[in-house]
């Protein structure tokens, strides 16, 4: 199951629980029950402790699982990415000038080997962009921001061969929705 679906199901389950609790509380207003301050206070205390523990457990489970690069493996390949209104240039060699960017952003998609850990070094020549790697079927796999003045290192291992479109995930101007890039896993 994808992260997206897990998150959606978790959300729907908690939302359903909330609706149920609110509905029960609203229904209880038809019968007059005297307020019991000490029982409410005890219940609140247990609820707060339980919720606190759940939050701590969720933090413990999710915080180690960040997408930031770690030194678990040495990447086998580095791909330089420069975003600029309104295309992504991907290249095996650093892109340092507008001319180089023009050349790579209009050339055939870069090829990367299947199963290899690839480090994308992502930056921007103008405004903030979002480097969003999608599957051909339109599922978002990974992203990092392309920020002018900074190089973000995104590491990704793709096993399935095929073309991977890159969409822009930060509003960057009038052709934001048409800004693209791509690479091919072989």
């Amino acid at each position: 199951m994808t992260v997206q679906l897990k998150a959606l199901y978790l959300f729907l389950a908690i939302a359903a629980l909330l609706i149920l609790v609110f509905a029960l509380a609203a229904l209880s207003t038809t019968s007059s029950i005297p307020a019991n301050a000490s029982a409410a206070s005890r219940l609140r205390k247990s609820f707060a402790i339980l919720l606190g523990l759940v939050l701590l457990a969720a933090l413990g489970l999710t915080l180690p699982n960040t997408p930031y690069p770690r030194q678990a493996d040495v990447p086998e390949k580095v791909v330089f990415v420069v975003a600029k209104q309104f295309a992504f240039g991907l290249s095996e060699t650093p892109i340092t000038t507008e001319e180089q960017w023009e050349a790579v952003s209009s050339s055939a998609p870069l090829e990367i080997p299947a199963g290899a850990l690839v480090e994308f070094r992502v930056t921007s020549f103008d405004v903030n962009h979002g480097f969003g790697v999608y599957t051909a079927g339109g599922r978002l796999l990974a992203q990092t921001q392309a920020m002018p003045g900074y190089v973000n290192r995104l590491r990704l291992r793709l096993d399935r061969p095929g073309k991977y479109p890159v969409l822009c995930l930060e509003l960057c101007g009038m052709q934001h929705h048409e800004m693209r890039g791509a690479f091919v896993v072989r």
């Binding site: 999710t62 699982n65 979002g130 969003g132 978002l140 796999l141 992203q143």
Partner: peptide, 11 residues
């Protein structure tokens, strides 16, 4: 959640 935001941010 950072790990979820990786595929939810700006969607």
């Amino acid at each position: 959640t950072v790990a979820v935001n990786f595929v939810f941010h700006n969607t």
